[in-house]
Design a protein around this nucleic acid. Structure first.
Lengths: 341, 341
DNA sequence: TTGTAGGCGTTATCAT
DNA sequence: ATGATAACGCCTACAA
């Protein structure tokens, strides 16, 4: 019952239906110039024998793959947080398969550009989704050089207009900084991820903007930028708390780092938000489970992935897509780490 | 500089080298019956023009894809935890691409078996890795019916011998139960995930075994099995704590649920581990960040993925692989939630 | 509306 | 050791 039958070819279907291969091909293609009668006959047979076209043959003939590629991030201290990746991936997969595309995911080894080149040169995918970007991003440079279709999840400042989608990190960081300022704090620090990662760059910019707007100094000793990791969060907070003039608030670019920072605060029995107001990006479970819970900017990673996929598929099908960055909404979720001060 | 050149075909390479297509093909294939002279000439040209074989054409001719498929899990209340998936995926990707395979990942829509059928019938992949299993698992049944090569990450009890890899959950759950018993607790509860998911079934079995071994009763009112979610953990703990005869320890099948349970305990100001010793599976960041931190069984999801990929590739290449389940190591990490009692 | 025939880029079989 | 040539399964002018 319900057994998977022998794999048929279009030729066999054609013979059974008593028509030519082209007619079957057209029927499958939804070509209108075909009589309703043969159409339904063909589909009955296809149904009955469970025929599905062979992908390789089809790809070869059409010179496209109906697959999009993404490269899997490397280690933990990579360019972005794990939580982000997972949700984005889910968004990409769902959208892509709703459009009859596949997702090819490859490990970035030996290096990411190598993996991308392989993907392109072996004609395995029609387009690529890049996840997050850096300043002087070799992946983006490669894509631009090859002219291969791609969409970036993230922003980029230096390469002119490319298809990309992001949340407005400058604005969000400004808003988050203001959120803390409004609670009376005036000495706000900043802990960022990898130096040169655009998320970090942009969030730092938003943070600085808001301080300036409030007429407050931007103090270098309050800014730590190094890598996306719990450890970095911990170390940075340690340094901040050993400053002669301690900050009374902090913004962290990412939930994982934030957990590290909180860990140190707990170790020295600092009161959050009394001694130190804390807020970060990525409304992950960590920030909810934490005690006190952490105020965050929600980043809808799922939608980021889903929209990027949509965009890329539109581009591949020559639909009009606006060049440049599309922004998705964000909002601030106030939790214990900044409230009741 | 370093530009991606025009895409060459094997025919063009052959012409430039002044040999036939077959010779080029053989050279690429590593066929020994070919003179060192032409070999190196061909490779020089390939190098120079940056030739790489077209995947579709190659797949068509060879009748294989050099790709393996996995289906992306659905919603949160799915069959297993998010943390597990991500690590396993990473393991799969790395191993697979080291062997020149690709990973095709598809959303399980409309249903997982549908997605699998599509993957198989359109000849997109050579084999499939299944993630976690249920009792009467329709995915496994489908694979068995089709005879399509697959490896399961997880165990299965009802389908005879299939290629699979897992940690020994029965044994691990026993050990975890004993860990709590050794700390003097005698009324231990169990919170499981989806009814019928093999992880839950096996861990429950291990738990029961150990209680029996200690001559303790297995009490139904101490066992809650429902779904993998924070909410379920919370609700279950709520019910447990409203029992006339409260438990004094609990084992949770998964870190997410455990966070839910902890949340309730915190709300009622219960003391952990004093009033309630807590332990769970999956040594995720949640369990480390939690206060108190949670004792867990570490499950090396990365290795699970990596070994599964290795196994599948061996199977596809007709290497001898032992049928049945291969186990990987686990260990218990003692943290605050069960120590100092 | 339908059929014929050639081509997509490789591999594989059979000669030489 | 190397070359022709026929698959592989599908698509797509071009013809009818």
């Amino acid at each position: 019952m319900n057994n998977i039958p022998k794999k048929m070819t279009i030729k066999e279907i054609a013979e059974i239906a008593g028509v030519s291969k082209s007619t079957v091909s057209r029927a499958i293609d939804g070509n209108p110039r075909i009589s309703e009668e043969t159409r339904s006959k063909i589909f009955d047979i296809i149904q009955k024998y469970g025929y599905t076209p062979n992908t390789a043959a089809r790809n070869l003939a059409r010179n496209k793959t109906n697959a999009i590629g993404i490269v899997m991030p490397h280690g933990e201290s990579g360019i972005y947080a794990a939580t982000f990746f997972q949700e984005a991936l889910k968004g990409i997969c769902n959208t892509v398969s709703n459009n009859n595309y596949d997702v090819l995911i490859t490990a970035g080894n030996p290096t990411e550009p190598e993996a991308i080149k392989r993907l392109i040169s072996t004609s395995r995918v029609d387009g690529i989704i890049l996840l997050r970007s850096k300043l002087r991003d070799t992946n983006i440079e490669l894509m631009l050089r090859t002219g291969f279709p791609f969409v970036l999840i993230g922003s980029c400042k230096e390469y002119g207009n490319i298809y990309s989608i992001d949340n407005d990190n400058i604005s969000a960081a400004s808003a988050l900084t203001e959120h803390i300022l409004q609670r009376g704090k005036r000495k706000i620090a900043f802990i960022g991820g990898v130096e040169g990662s655009i998320v970090t760059v942009n969030r730092l910019e938003g943070y600085k903007n808001k301080l300036t707007e409030y007429g407050l100094p931007v103090r270098d000793e309050y800014i730590y930028v190094h890598e996306f990791s719990e450890k970095h969060g911990y170390e940075s907070m340690k340094k901040l708390m050993s400053l002669p003039d301690r900050p009374d608030g902090v913004i962290t670019v990412d939930d994982t780092m934030c957990m590290g920072a909180m860990k140190y605060l707990e170790e020295i029995n600092a009161c959050v938000p009394g001694d130190m107001a804390v807020a970060c990006f990525n409304d992950s479970a960590y920030t909810r489970f934490s005690r006190p819970s952490i105020t965050t900017v929600t980043v809808d990673s799922y939608q980021l992935g889903s929209s990027a996929a949509e965009m890329l598929i539109d581009v591949l099908n020559n639909k009009r897509v606006d060049l440049g960055c599309r922004y998705i909404d964000y909002k601030i979720l106030e939790r214990e780490s900044t409230s009741g001060i």
